[in-house]
Design a protein around this nucleic acid. Structure first.
Lengths: 211, 211
DNA sequence: CTTTGACAAGACTAAATAGTCGGGTATATT
DNA sequence: AATATACCCGACTATTTAGTCTTGTCAAAG
């Protein structure tokens, strides 16, 4: 069960990247064959499937329907895509996260981390004093360790929410703090699972397509 | 010899852009038809030809073989660069802005505005309650009109600073408010010039290049 | 020494997709 | 009135393209 990228897979990834960079759109199987120097579709099919399985690309059905998601160890100059998982709440934890199946382009600097990054749309006003308003979007980097003061994405039961993580010497010790005086702190129970840290806040409609 | 982009052409351009942004690859004729709400291929062919003629897109033969080139009325489709102007202060307005000559890749959604966008590194803690910490970076979109509550980038004399713009009915009427109780409001004088609004906050080191 | 995974060749089929043809309307310009 | 431009319809064809099938090599792992 080898999951590290192989030399050949890396080469194909580079072929795809180079093609995109110079043409502006992704290559066909035929074009990948030529640039990789193989004569069989099956080679491409196999390699693409592995790249997809390991999260390097996304592949839909249809002509040229592939996109590079990120590169594991290399700088890539192309906007990569972060999955938009759905809408979370910055108010009362009410709404569960659902996979929206949509993708948002992120800068390639961010995309370097992208194995563990996703994007959430915020609804609610419980974090307005932290600069996160209703309608904003946040990029969440999944991680396991947090320090007091981090703004985190947490699941409470099966609901997702964004709050500030607080860890004190005195009661209530460890809790999630909404950045809005109208909301109460959320105490830590077994039901609360921290998933990641907010690394970027895209204000309101600035992240959406412009009309 | 009409060369201005028409409303319909602009709509198609937006359809293409939106499709690319969410899928990572360009749309087919069929997909463009659906998103534009027409039933004929010819409509797409015609519109594409005009967009191509006027330099908005490139079109090769083959499936999904089109790409948005650059701008006409907006920057589209490719990773753009936002100039990093330097370090501003979120503490006492102390340091003047200097061109750092550095560039940061931004997502293509942001890049649509990019003629008027720049990025600043933040030093100081005067905006911590608005979620902007020392070491963060912000994207500033230059604009001329502001509403109370906007987080703005302002020049005071020859120094740059990021604060919340406030406009009240009662004294002190119009002022810049640090989001940190340890700092005092800054009253509006002739010396204060609002330059733009913060549209994105990139937390701490998440925006830097990783090694 | 057998199995498994990565990779490849070449031929084939099914489906997606571009692109054409021959119309049409509306509006503005000359 | 005549001409040009932008835009649209619906049906049709040609081609591109993805994807499958079958077979094979090689190297590493158990």
């Amino acid at each position: 069960m080898q999951r590290a990228i192989t030399e050949r897979q890396k080469q194909l990834l580079e072929v795809i990247y180079d093609f995109c960079a110079s043409s502006g759109y992704p290559p066909t199987f035929e074009e990948m064959r030529q640039n990789l120097g193989v004569s069989s579709n099956q080679s491409i099919v196999d390699l693409l499937e592995k790249l997809r399985r390991d999260g390097f690309i996304k592949k839909d059905s249809g002509a040229r329907s592939l996109a590079i998601l990120h590169l594991g160890y290399e700088v890539i100059g192309r906007p990569a895509l972060a999955p938009v998982l759905g809408t979370t709440t910055a108010g009362l934890p009410a709404e569960s996260i659902e996979i929206a199946g949509d993708w948002h382009p992120v800068s390639s600097d961010v995309a370097k981390f992208a194995e563990d990054i996703f994007m959430l749309k915020i609804s609610g006003d419980s974090m307005i004093n932290a600069g996160i308003d209703d309608g904003d979007a946040v990029l969440v980097q999944t991680m396991k360790e947090f320090v007091s003061g981090d703004i985190v994405f947490a699941e409470i039961g099966d609901e997702g929410t964004v709050k500030r993580f607080m860890s004190d010497d005195k009661p209530p010790y460890v809790y999630l703090k909404p950045e809005n005086p109208n909301y109460k702190n959320i105490l830590f129970t077994d039901d609360v699972r921290l998933k990641g840290k907010i690394i970027s806040v895209l204000k309101d409609k600035s992240w959406q397509s412009v009309k």
